[in-house]
Design a protein around this nucleic acid. Structure first.
Length: 274
DNA sequence: ATCGGTACCTGCACGC
DNA sequence: TGCGTGCAGGTACCGA
């Protein structure tokens, strides 16, 4: 039996989900921001009135993703930067609800931010914010040589390293588990000690799993939808994540769960070696 | 610089 | 039925 939903363990927007959102709002490029309202201080970096003033009248020049950040480029080098946190949604149109914390009125349409858990962040900046600048390389762009070189100095467990946004930007809990399974590497293995052959498999697995997930529109366990409210389908391809106790797709051994870096970590003890 | 731990927050399933 | 409790995990931040 395949578990496709578990409300206890809702998914989180990682690179493929953020990429899907970015693509789904791409059509607002060229539109102008008329006004913006922010109603929840917790999710803001900056003063709401000042942010509104910086946005009003600006035209949207481009929308792109950097790690798990959504970067909406405006004229004069200004950026509207959104991080979805755990439960954030960026939606086009629709009716504002209890968890709507930001409304950006465009010359045509409305961009709306919702976030029940308020772990997301919105900011307006000149150029890229420092925390976005400091992100590690994009996992879909980093070369094997650079990936291996960066891993050399890391004495932490490989799962922790993958979750570190300064190592690569965009991998989160789901895709770290899935990539490690596909590479046959135990999540507790020490990053720097991995032989080149295994590093190569990991690099390949990360690219493969992220690319496939983007093709499927991301993973939807419970919360995640794109700007149109569409769910993704990659959850059907999960081989270890949230499959605790179920048989490994390779060997039939039960999938195990442990904690690494305080995060639920799913793996096959038989197929993934330290 | 790197590492491990903690705080933040809400909605749920669960058990009594 | 109803309420308290535990759990999920993004980033930021802390001390070592």
């Amino acid at each position: 039996m395949v578990t496709i939903s578990c409300s206890k363990c809702r998914n989180v927007p990682e690179l493929p989900e953020v990429e899907t959102v970015v693509r789904s709002i791409a059509r607002i490029v060229g539109r102008r921001i008329v006004s913006a309202e922010f109603t929840c201080a917790r999710i803001l970096r900056g003063d709401p009135d000042q942010m509104s003033a910086m946005l009003a009248g600006r035209r949207i020049r481009a929308i792109r993703r950097r790690g798990k950040f959504i970067v909406i480029e405006l004229d004069a080098g200004h950026c509207l930067v959104v991080h979805l946190g755990m439960t954030g949604k960026l939606l086009l149109g629709g009716t504002p609800g209890r968890h709507t914390h930001a409304i950006v009125n465009l010359d045509r349409g409305v961009l709306r931010y919702e976030d029940p858990r308020q772990f997301g962040k919105i900011e307006v900046s000149r150029g890229l914010p420092a925390r976005v600048e400091k992100l590690g390389p994009e996992p879909l762009e980093i070369t094997l040589a650079e990936f291996a070189a960066r891993l050399k100095g890391r004495k932490a467990r490989i799962k922790s390293v993958l979750l570190d946004q300064h190592f690569v930007g965009g991998v989160g809990n789901i895709y770290a588990d899935e990539a490690l399974f596909r590479a046959g590497i135990h999540p507790l293995a020490i990053g720097a000690r991995l032989r080149l052959e295994r590093v190569k498999r990991l690099h390949h697995a990360i690219v493969e799993v992220l690319t496939q997930a983007i093709e499927k529109g991301g993973s939807s366990i419970s919360d995640y939808v794109d700007a149109e409210g569409r769910r993704g389908f990659f959850q059907f391809e999960h081989r270890v994540y949230q499959r605790t106790g179920e048989p490994c797709v390779n060997c039939g051994a039960p999938i195990r769960r442990t904690l690494v870096a305080q995060r639920g970590t799913h793996y096959c003890a038989k197929c993934q070696r330290r």
